[in-house]
Design a protein around this nucleic acid. Structure first.
Lengths: 189, 189
DNA sequence: CGATATGTGTACCGATCTGTTCATGTTTGC
DNA sequence: GCAAACATGAACAGATCGGTACACATATCG
C-alpha cells in the first residue's frame, strides 16, 4: 500500500476538477477537499498541469472501462449492442452529479491543440471511436468506420445537450436516430 | 458614434475570450489586446462576469444571424435546406481561427446551471433548435420536433469532433447521417 | 464659450494563484 | 530498532487576479 496517497490524490482531485473545472479549482481547494497536504501533492506532481494530466489519464481509463464493461454485461447481439450505447448514456446522464464529459470540458479549457490535456482528451475519444468501430464491424455494417463515427457524433451531441439542458431527452433522441442509422448501414434487417 | 467604445470592447473581447477562454483571460490581457483602458471597461461593465455576459449575447446574435442568413441565401427547397446546415457547418470549421462553439465552452467553464453564462448558452441552443424546427416543419417532417433535435445533436457532436480533432471530416459524417434521418422523417421521397 | 459626459494612465488594494522552504512527524523495510 | 522514505503543517515568495482611486485629457452639445 505504498503509492496509495498518489492514487488517492488523483481520484479525489478528479472529482473536484469534474465538479468545478480546472482553472476554477486552486491547489488550496484541493488540499481542503482531498485532505492531502500541498507538500505531498507537489512531491508527486511537479506542477498542477501534471496532476491534471494524471487525472485525465485516470478518468479515461475508468470511464472507458465502465462504459464498455456495462455494454458487454448486457450480452446482446452485436446489432442491439450498438443501440445500447445510448441506454448506457442515459444511465450516465441520470447519475446525480452528472456534469457532462470531462474531456470536452478539458479541451474547452485548454484550447491549444498542442496542450497535453487537449491531446489526451482527443485520445480518449479516439479510443472510444475505435471501440465503436469494432462493434460496428461485428454487427456487419457496410461501412463500419462511418457508422461508428456517426454514432460517436450522436453520443457527443447528446452529452452536450444533457450538460447544457436544452433538450429534455437527448439520449432518447440520439437512440432513435441511431436506430435509423443502424438500419440503413446494416444489410438484411 | 457615442457608445462605440462599448461595442468595440465587446467585439474585441469576444475574439480574445473565444481564442483563449474565459478564466484564462485576465482583464489586463483585455486591456493589452483591445487597447481600451481598464477604467473604461469597468465604467461600462461592473464586473468581468457582466462583460462576459454581454460578449455571449453579442456572439449569440451575430453567430445565429450569420448561420441562418447563410442558409437562406442558398434559396434551396426546404428539404435541401435541412441538409445544407452541415455545409454551412463545414464552412465554419474551415475558417482560420475556428476553436469550437463558444457556448459549449462557456457552459464548460461556468458549470453551475444557475450561472447566467450557462443559462445564456442554453438559450442560444434553444433558439437554434427553434429555427431548425421551423425548417423541419416547412420540409413536411412527420415529427418536426424530433427531427430538429436529432439534427441539432449531430451538429453539436460535429462541433465537438471538429474542436477536439478526433474525426477527419465531422461535417461530412454528420451530413450523411442527416440525410438518412431526413429521408426517414419526411414522407414521399 | 462653458458644462457634462466619456475616455486615459498609473498607481494601488486585498485576495488568490502556483509553487517553495523547512522543521517536524509517521511509516516502512531490513 | 534504526535508517530511509514518505507525509505533514504553516509560513512564505512572487506573480497575477478582479477591481478602485484619482488626476487629467478630450469631445460633444447647448
Amino acid at each position: 500500500m505504498r503509492p496509495s496517497k498518489r492514487d488517492e490524490l488523483v481520484r479525489k482531485s478528479q472529482a473536484v476538477f469534474y465538479r468545478d473545472g480546472f482553472h476554477a479549482t486552486g491547489m488550496d481547494t484541493l488540499v481542503a477537499e482531498t485532505g492531502i497536504s500541498k507538500t505531498t501533492m507537489f512531491k508527486h506532481f511537479r506542477t498542477k498541469d501534471d496532476l491534471i494530466l494524471a487525472v485525465l489519464r485516470y478518468r479515461d481509463e475508468t470511464f472507458r472501462n465502465w462504459f464498455l464493461r456495462r455494454l458487454d454485461e448486457r450480452d446482446l447481439p452485436p446489432r442491439q449492442k450498438l443501440l445500447a450505447i445510448f441506454d448506457i448514456l442515459e444511465e450516465w446522464f441520470e447519475e446525480t452529479g452528472f456534469r457532462g464529459c470531462m474531456f470536452i470540458k478539458a479541451s474547452a479549457e485548454f484550447q491549444d491543440p498542442a496542450h497535453p490535456a487537449h491531446a489526451q482528451s482527443s485520445e480518449h475519444k479516439r479510443l472510444l471511436l475505435s471501440a465503436f468501430r469494432s462493434l460496428a464491424e461485428n454487427a456487419g455494417a457496410r461501412k463500419p468506420d462511418l457508422l461508428a463515427r456517426q454514432l460517436l457524433l450522436l453520443k457527443e451531441g447528446a452529452i452536450v445537450a444533457a450538460q447544457m439542458g436544452f433538450d429534455p431527452d437527448p439520449a432518447g433522441a440520439a437512440r432513435e436516430a441511431a436506430s435509423v442509422l443502424i438500419e440503413a448501414h446494416i444489410p438484411d434487417a
